[in-house]
Design a protein around this nucleic acid. Structure first.
Length: 207
DNA sequence: CCAATGATTGCCT
DNA sequence: GGCAATCATTGGC
C-alpha cells in the first residue's frame, strides 16, 4: 500500500484534492490497534475566502492554527461536545485549506472499530458521517497537528478503480450565505457509508 | 469571567 | 419529523 506523498497535500485546488481523496485509504495504528478504511465522502473548505471555513477571513485561533501550516497535517476538532471531526490540511503554508472526511468504508481492524462503538455486529452506521469517521478510526482532537506522513497515521493510494463520483452542496453550513451553494461536497454514488441527505438528490454526476 | 454554540448523531414519538 | 446530549472554543463583557 503506497502512502500519499507530501506533494499531494501541497496541491492548490482544494476541490480537486477533495475529489481525488475519494477511494483512498485512511490508515491508523494508535495503541497498536491497526484500522483502515476507504474514503467515500469528503467536503472541501477553501481557506480564507470561504465563509464556511474555520479560517475564513484569515481568522487565526489556537484551534485553527494548524490549518495555516503546509498541507499534510491532521486538523481534528470537537463538534457538539461529542464528535471528533477529522480534516486533512492542504495547500502551501499560509493557505489554510482543509478537507473534511465525512464517510469511510471499513476495510481492516473491524474488531477495534466494534470495540470503539461498543457493538458486537457491523452495521452501515459505522463510518457513516464525519463524527463516525473519527469514532471508527480512533481519531480524537488530541491527534490534531499530527503529520499524515507518519507511520501510525497516513493516507494510502488504493489500486485502480473507476469511481462513480457525485458533487453536491455542503451539509450544515447554512450560515455561509452564497458560499453554501458551492458544489464542494464529493461522494461515491449509492455508497452505504455516505450521509443520507436531501442534497444527494440534487447532486451532479462528475466525469 | 461567563454564556452561547456547533463541518452532528441517534433516540424518541 | 422533533429534539436532547455534551464540552472546547469563542467572543462579549
Amino acid at each position: 500500500m503506497q502512502k500519499l506523498n507530501k506533494e499531494f497535500y501541497l496541491g492548490t485546488d482544494v476541490a480537486v484534492l477533495a475529489r481525488e481523496l475519494l477511494g483512498k485509504i485512511v490508515v491508523t495504528k494508535f495503541n497498536n490497534q491497526y484500522t483502515a478504511a476507504r474514503i467515500v465522502e469528503t467536503e472541501a473548505y477553501a481557506g480564507i475566502i470561504d465563509r464556511a471555513s474555520h479560517a475564513y477571513n484569515s481568522k487565526r485561533t489556537n484551534r485553527t492554527e494548524i490549518m495555516f501550516a503546509e498541507g499534510g497535517y491532521a486538523y481534528v476538532y470537537l463538534c457538539y461536545g461529542i464528535h471528533h471531526m477529522f480534516n486533512i490540511v492542504t495547500n502551501k503554508a499560509g493557505k489554510p485549506d482543509a478537507i473534511l472526511i465525512r464517510g469511510v468504508e471499513p476495510l481492516e481492524g473491524g474488531k477495534w472499530m466494534l470495540q470503539r462503538y461498543k457493538k458486537d455486529r457491523f452495521d452501515s452506521s459505522i463510518g457513516r458521517g464525519p463524527g463516525n469517521v473519527g469514532k471508527a478510526l480512533g481519531i480524537f482532537t488530541a491527534h490534531t497537528g499530527t503529520s499524515l506522513l507518519s507511520k501510525h497515521f497516513f493516507i494510502a493510494e488504493d489500486g485502480v478503480n473507476h469511481l462513480n463520483i457525485m458533487a453536491s452542496k455542503r451539509i450544515g453550513i447554512d450560515y455561509a450565505g452564497a458560499h453554501a451553494q458551492w458544489l464542494y461536497r464529493f461522494f461515491i454514488k449509492n455508497h452505504p457509508q455516505v450521509t443520507k441527505h436531501p442534497f444527494n438528490k440534487s447532486a451532479i454526476a462528475m466525469l
